[in-house]
Amino acid sequence: MSTSVLPGTSAETKLETTRDVVVETRNLTKVYRDFWGRQKVRALKALDLSIFRGEIFGLLGPNGSGKTTTMKLLLGLLFPTEGEALVFGKPATDVSKNERIGYLPEETYLYRFLTGEETLDFYGRLFNIPAAVRRQRSAELLELVGLTAARKRQLREYSKGMARRLGLAQALINDPDLILLDEPTTGLDPIGTRAMKDLILQLRDRGKTIIMCSHLLADVQDVCDRVGILYQGELKELGRVDSLLKIRDVTEIRVAGLPPVALEEIKGVVERHNGQVQFIGNPTTTLEELFLNIVAESEAHPGRRVRGGVSDGH
């Protein structure tokens, strides 16, 4: 995994020569204009970015910061006003690059009159995949996203979460090397969200490159190796997640099974070294962890009441 670097540093230059660059943007700028050619909004300003093979890259930013515009420029859905975007070394408008790309859009833009199976078959055909391979991959992907039972139903009958999962399946139909996920966990319940995040990590482990943008910072934090933070079309921060989030002048020690007496001794040690105790107490789990534990426990022991993720035994 790469170390956090900012563009233009010597460390980055060294990295770029040693690792495969999958996506590269140079001075990428997008200006939206009206019918008469007058500038409406400058959505993206001179973005310079390199994304490497095998990493999960997160694009963060508030609404209108240029995340989706960047995605669409990389996909060739929009044309750059200035600069260029290269994907696998080809211009983003080159159709042939799509052979190696999977894309999950922000909303599930699928044909509601097709069934789940037909949808995957249709997108498989667009990748020129032979029928036998299409059938096999469709079955595997439907199994992967848990839609095998609903494969014959039209998408108009799907819930938002089901449609989202099918959207992910269509993005993977060609076994892509680069996967672009626009708000991948939107519309998913906590179980689906966790499954999606696990899947993203699995894909990364299989050597895929993933670019995702999301409003849900916790999701980004959980899965992304590197993030770029956009604000009003400008890249404000770029680097490894763990490095960016590290608070360097605070030390955290987690100890299990410590008696209260030992706590007092530790406080004393800290004071002797002119340190300042900011917090001593029990750490909390995340709500997501709690929810998933309850669901898992409920499935293991139906009928029992579950407290704090642990069955009360009644």
């Binding site: 859009p105 833009y109 699928l110 667009l126 990748f127």
Partner: peptide, 14 residues
């Protein structure tokens, strides 16, 4: 309008 075209043109379709 429904943006379904976006999932089509992001495939290697001419």
């Amino acid at each position: 309008r429904n943006r379904t075209i976006q999932t089509v043109v992001t495939k290697p379709v001419r």
